[in-house]
Design a protein around this nucleic acid. Sequence first.
DNA 1: GGCAGACACCGACCAAAGTAGGGGATCACC
DNA 2: GGTGATCCCCTACTTTGGTCGGTGTCTGCC
Lengths: 221, 221
Amino acid sequence: MSTGLPIGLLLVDDDPLIRAGLGTILASDPGLKILGEAENGLRAIELASRLQPEVIMMDIRMPQLDGLGAMERILAESATAKVLILTTFGEEEYIDRAMSGGAAGFMLKSSDPEELIRGVYSVADGAAALSPRIAKRLVDKFRSVDHDRRARAIGLIEQLTPREHDVLALVGAGSSNSEILDELVLTPATVKGHMTSILLKLKVRNRVEAALIAYQGGLVD
Amino acid sequence: MSTGLPIGLLLVDDDPLIRAGLGTILASDPGLKILGEAENGLRAIELASRLQPEVIMMDIRMPQLDGLGAMERILAESATAKVLILTTFGEEEYIDRAMSGGAAGFMLKSSDPEELIRGVYSVADGAAALSPRIAKRLVDKFRSVDHDRRARAIGLIEQLTPREHDVLALVGAGSSNSEILDELVLTPATVKGHMTSILLKLKVRNRVEAALIAYQGGLVD
DNA sequence: GGCAGACACCGACCAAAGTAGGGGATCACC
DNA sequence: GGTGATCCCCTACTTTGGTCGGTGTCTGCC
């Protein structure tokens, strides 16, 4: 990944003081080299293309074009740059969009200098850099997104007999009864019988809800 | 959270050398205090209950009971302890289970000493501690788990008219046509007409697949 | 051996989902 | 003011889904 020794940086923030502070911190490390600074998203896009930095330290709120928008456009052009989003305490709600958009890191501006520097090295290395508080958000999200529903779904699915399990897996994939009987070599009536039993055990009223449980329980894909 | 100044630790690893190394690193920080050590999961459970540590540094592979199993049982009893999973390079596949099980952090044993210490403080503070490489895994998972399917689903759903959107949202919740017509005040035939149009636009064959797309697109919940 | 329970299987019947096609209202554009 | 596009609504018809009841088999148990 690293072209030579020093990692080329681009600093993007609309506040000159913050750029100066960041610059001082990062320039103090001999392995980092600041190639340029930008004061808004549009200028960041321009400089990213011209200077080809390895890591871009990007503020979110800026005039003209915000950091996330700029990041998306930069990543669409150059796959090589890593974007490390810098944020203040109250802006944690942008995590989703930043992560979806391809950010390599998401750190608080209030992080310790060494932590910032470590973060730059991490993302340059292809890993991710997250402030602990941000990491917590991500972990919580990861846990909740599936794992309440998922646990319930798995518990329900465990009640099924092997054959019912087979049928449910196909239902979860959106198969019709005729496709199921074709796959499992059964008569229509048998498939339907299994379905009735499945609906009863999963405590749902129709195959749509059954399919959702199969999906949540990880029976599909 | 923090009761006094020093954070009480419990070290769990079956290798005495690693316990010694960890102990030396962590005891060098005046804000940390090692309350005890355990060489397997069962003993960890016993000591966690007796010593009431704030943070437990937990290895995964151990005889008797592994670290994840021990963590799950410890967290089931005491909600206050934070568990920081320590792992070697090749064991990253346990991330899912660790995070689902309630781990507050997941770090590589090869992390720098300062990074480990920082991790302990982070989890004691209610945040999360992740090694950059682990964080990358989590970020990737977060991105992929939803955001390929999700983007596609949202794109498809955008094609729908407002009324079709309403119908699909209810289908995604597992509603039958009669429930939908009741909710939206329509005749059965109208609901079916909308359904036909929905199936066409989403390019699916039946309401089960439509419901799955609604679910992936975030129309439900 | 008889009996209970779980499982996979099936036929006949009724309910729900999906298809094909059309009416009417609105809006934009020439 | 005619034309086309879009949307919402609807009737009549076919296909699929779901219920109810019942058969044969295997297993474990007294």
